[in-house]
Design a protein around this nucleic acid. Structure first.
Lengths: 205, 205
DNA sequence: ACCTGAACACCGTTCAAGT
DNA sequence: ACCTGAACACCGTTCAAGT
């Protein structure tokens, strides 16, 4: 019922236009239904044609992941980072992951292969650099793992809700999702400050 | 080259024995190669026979997820929770997720459907209950999201390493994985304590 | 209670060949 | 430079039928 070959005016495609259509298709149907064959149909070409543009589906997903993460602004200002700065950095990463359906899962699946890692890592590290005395990269890594875990669980819940099963998970007892996120980030920040005040008391347990 | 029907001595299977074989197969070949057809071959039966035991592959994965999470000890002692108690609670969840190949991903995929949620949630909440004045469930949710994100990224990296691409990710600049985990948990704990001392100063930004 | 056999509607990927 | 056509080796799932 949809029009075929709708991404471009010309009959032929390149890496970028294919990625654009793939990203839209992902948002429409979700990751489990994003198949090479379905994407090819959407583009009005044969499935095999996709392998001229990409070596594999995994590589296509990597290109999608980079598009998703490109929403993260790299630097706003470089004065001393306030609580609000760190919070907005964390939010910008979360927002990028949540902007497209199953975005967090796509990014996760490509993350270890190196797609768009620099951007996310750099964003957090730079804002934490002039804040944490304990070690900006430990703090950045921890915060990033929290953000990714958060986004994955949020989208996982959306996935379940769209399957009819309503709120089987128990943790919606705690207010709305985004304020829990903010609280989580602030927990981190206070932890960093506390670690700066009394350092080296948490190495062994 | 492997022996067929190796999970049980009797010729027929039940839900539990199928789950056991599936869990072992998961650990051997990983989630992408854990197919219903391959599992059936491993059990020495036809693929269709699996649908007598489970309604769908998703339901089978749910059973696997519950097995994985059953490694989490529920309660050790109920005195006042020290730093070490919280840390060991977080570790026990992480260890369960990391105990089997792709365990974190399996748990994530079943999490929103309610498999084994109570166990993980309860473990953290109970230990944080008599610690955080700010709200044990916010703290538990945040910590849980961190633990899941951590485990997913660790296994994602293992996945990438087994594909030959060695250390493309940048965050191994920070020591070994498990000490970064511990540091992350401690960051949380200090944040909780700090929030208890100066409450209500982080609501709006 | 547990399983077979056959079928349906799909996958990702390769490769020679076309324009 | 970009695509077709045909094939290969797979998927999850259903369903009548067997024991």
């Amino acid at each position: 019922m949809m029009a075929e070959r709708n991404s471009d005016r010309s009959g032929r495609h390149d890496r970028d236009s294919v990625t654009t259509t793939a990203l839209r298709l992902l948002d429409d149907v979700g990751l489990p239904d994003l198949s090479m064959r379905r994407l090819a149909t959407e583009l009005g070409i044969q499935p095999s044609a996709l392998y001229w543009h990409f070596d594999s589906k995994q590589q296509l997903l990597g290109a999608i992941a980079e598009r998703i993460l490109s929403r993260i602004p790299l630097e706003e200002h470089d004065e001393i980072a306030t609580d609000a700065d760190v919070l907005s950095a964390a939010r910008s990463i979360r927002d990028a992951l949540l902007a497209y359906r199953d975005g967090a899962e796509v990014v996760l699946s490509s993350y270890a292969l190196g797609f768009g890692v620099d951007r996310t890592q750099a964003r957090l590290r730079s804002v934490l650099q002039r804040r944490a005395s304990i070690g900006a990269d430990v703090a950045a890594t921890t915060l990033l793992q929290f953000v990714i875990g958060h986004a994955l669980l949020v989208q996982q819940r959306l996935h379940a809700e769209s399957l009819g099963a309503t709120h089987l998970v128990g943790d919606d007892t705690t207010g709305d999702v985004s304020s829990v996120f903010d609280d989580g980030v602030m927990l981190f920040l206070h932890g960093i400050d506390a670690a700066a005040k009394r350092p080296e008391d948490h190495s062994e347990v």
